[in-house]
Amino acid sequence: MSKPVETGQIIDIDILRYRPEEDKKPFTQTFEVPYTEDMSILEALQHIKDHLDSTISFRWSCRMAICGSCGLMVNGVPKLGCKAFLRDYYPKKISLEPLANFPIERDLVVVMDDFIKKLEEIKPYIIPEKTGDKKCLSEGPHKQTPEQMAKYKQFSMCINCGLCYAACPQYGLDNKFTGPAALALLARYNRDSRDFGEAQRMKIVNQEEGVWGCTFVGYCSVVCPKGVDPAAAIQLLKVESSKDYLIGMFKPE
């Protein structure tokens, strides 16, 4: 990493801290970080850990908005630390908090177990036509036209960062709701021409805690760093669920 240009400018960063061994509840600690124009929030956190307070905890890995680890609340808005820059806030103070709507594990690290469980529940894999009727590898790949891929590609760009869950008041009010990322991923598989698992997944969609937990606040799509548009995925699934409901009325199982 090239050495940043020292300008002597300082930016204040408030961090919501929580140390489970000693704290009953979170508290705010302020750090003074030397400001440079190209410094990301994640780099500021690394500066704090390296030079100011080594006890501070946060998740990170790739530094380039692809691993989805460094999600946090920047002035109350869910963002990736590596994709948000000090220059967009300077000279004002920045407040950092762990992602909203998730329990805090320690400092800026949240417990994501519920989110992971939901991703697993929606059967996020291609379900072949019939079990036992799988196409043999020697018969070649499953072909797909660019048009068929375009139908689901947008919904497959998710990096599981959890920003949309932090942006979703319905998930915050009731975490039984399956939530934006998991439903977008579900739509991704249902819309894939190689997949035949729609009937299985529609049972998840049709529940109260499936798509019907959504009131179309739409903030999930605004905060998504990869342009997945979960709100659109859910809206399209609502239409599918309504069709499924009509069919179910005439053709009960």
């Binding site: 529940q207 019907w212 609502k238 309504s242």
Partner: peptide, 20 residues
């Protein structure tokens, strides 16, 4: 992962109200 018991899913009647 071993998940032996198949989860039961309850269909919501929300499509009626959502349609209206």
């Amino acid at each position: 992962m071993s998940e032996n018991k198949e989860k039961t899913y309850i269909r919501s009647h929300e499509p009626v109200f959502w349609g209206l």
